[in-house]
Nucleic acid binder design. Structure first.
Lengths: 186, 186, 186, 186
DNA sequence: GATGAATGAGACTTCATTCAT
DNA sequence: TATGAATGAAGTCTCATTCAT
């Protein structure tokens, strides 16, 4: 594994466990078996490191949730599949989920990166847009609907992760239905 | 106003604007017109200050959202009123909303305060419990339903606050309906 | 007990246990049931408090070690009695002993108090002086001999206090003999 | 000279002059021409710095006082030589002597370092042990005898250092004799 | 006499970052 | 590329002391 990747992996892990601010560069140095200077060889500074990691995760996530979606399927089924994709991506990568949550709620989020990462959203935006146009979804701002879905999934993931319980396929189906009911046309 | 209150008010304002970590004790000192030592007269340390502020806000919030609820009203109407109470409490106190969001996503949240503040939830838990029993709401864990509603309101509030737009009463009604649809029995 | 005495007692106890610097005024306040301002009513500042306590202890100690000395006794016997007086004063008042040790090794000792407290030494100086004149003791500076005796007793007391053992009368006699042998004429 | 050594030297000098507590890290920074962070690169914290310095001095002292002792010499002569070694080590390194005195009387001393540094005592313990076995010294606990000798030397050194007088070789011989008389078999 | 809220200088320490090797 | 010693600004907190009540 390259030094750069070691740094990124350690950063994800530490931020997930301790949060953005408790994750000092010194700690990353210690845990990643890399010298302080090396980090600054690959990243301009701490903010750049964090933002880069976030960017990469967003891209990965963006790919994950549209994966294996057959366009021929009915809209509702695609919705359910997408929800599941997102859910399992988070469930199977709890540290990445937590990193993203930490980042999203940090003051860093306020900056320009928002737009930069927007493009990873594009397929999602398109999907929602089409849902509204075709009369499957309520007439609400797309970004709002996306936030709603994202928030919904996050609540479910958080519940599972922190309660350390698992969830049956049936229950999961109920939960997705709940999300679907909040955005679909009655 | 007492020194203690000055400190608390300044803390809410600064944390709302800059986040938990960018809000240094030095900044609080400067903005609150209080000596450094005075803060430590009222609070054990920064963590204690933050947690105390959070606790007080949670209590206030707990009171706000069950306010003016006539028990004689139909369940659904009560649900809508509670949603609105919560919504307007956040909308009218944006700094308190942001403080709570910052706190909730911080590593501090992980600690014991969670339980301590649980009692402010009690009316909410009871309300949800009754809704499930009477067959108005889906059979899901109460705490999960509460999280879902909370997340839903938060998304709406965030949208309004950050987009700096306002929202018509009609739209609001639609949004509450969306939340209701995600938890009500079909 | 007067507030003043409460302060002094608490100070002795805390300094004995924790040392001069770990004994903060705040700690004295907490442990002595006295308000911060009250301490400053009786003492000019921390240094004054410590020095006053020390002065009082020195006076007490000065009285203790010449107590019950019959001038008619042989010189050597008087020496043994004085040694014992000093020893038992320390053994029976371990906190006072420790306070004195902490003070004596502190930078405060360097100041003027040394002379002020000199007068409590006077009987000791006289006793040593007479011993030299009469040919019982070696011709060395009196203050040096006093330091030697004081150091000797302190070593014994420290040993007993920290090892938490006690000591037989016979052993004690041997120890005094050791001290006596270091200053008597051969 | 390395940064680490600069820090240690400055620490010895400042503690000797001002005591353990008046020697702030800030002062060490100023006097040693080193950045604050650099101290924490070499030492975990102030306590660690002080303890490390003390440890090194104890080792140096341990080497100093058994230096040039010819085992073939008579016991008493070896005793005199050892006393002199210790005496001159302190007299020639007054700041180290004062550092050790400050440390020894501080609350830090109470901790584990005591044992760690015990091994530097080993030659001394052996020497005393042999003295008792061979009938040269009184039957008293070795550690007690060591404390006695140490206290004796310290009184002499303190006298010379603080009175700023020097001492003739004859007088010195008298003083060692006094120490010897306090521990030798009559 | 007694109280304790309020002060602010200064103590210790952390941490992102640089730079010579 | 990679290292890690060195930096110093800034953060948190303590503590002796004051003063209005």
């Amino acid at each position: 594994m390259t030094k750069r990747q070691q740094i990124i992996d350690t950063t994800i892990q530490l931020v997930a466990e301790m949060g953005l601010y408790a994750t000092s560069m010194g700690l990353i140095v210690k845990e990643s078996n890399v010298a302080a200077g090396t980090i600054y060889h690959y990243f301009k500074n701490k903010e750049d490191l964090i933002k880069t990691v976030y960017s990469e995760l967003r891209e990965e996530m963006g790919k994950a949730f549209i994966q294996n979606i057959d366009n021929a399927l009915p809209y509702k089924e695609k919705f359910f599949l997408i929800w599941k994709n997102l859910f399992y991506y988070f469930k199977d990568n709890p540290q990445k989920f937590q990193f993203i949550e930490h980042y999203a709620s940090s003051p860093l989020e306020k900056n320009e990166v928002k737009e930069i990462n927007q493009r990873h959203y594009q397929p999602a935006i398109n999907f929602i847009q089409k849902g509204i146009e075709k009369g499957y979804l309520r007439t609400l701002p797309e970004s709002f609907i996306i936030q709603l879905i994202f928030a919904h999934v996050s609540v479910v993931v958080r519940m599972i992760l922190f309660d350390e319980t698992d969830i049956s396929v049936t229950t999961l189906q109920l939960l997705i239905q709940s999300c679907w009911d909040s955005v679909r046309i009655n």
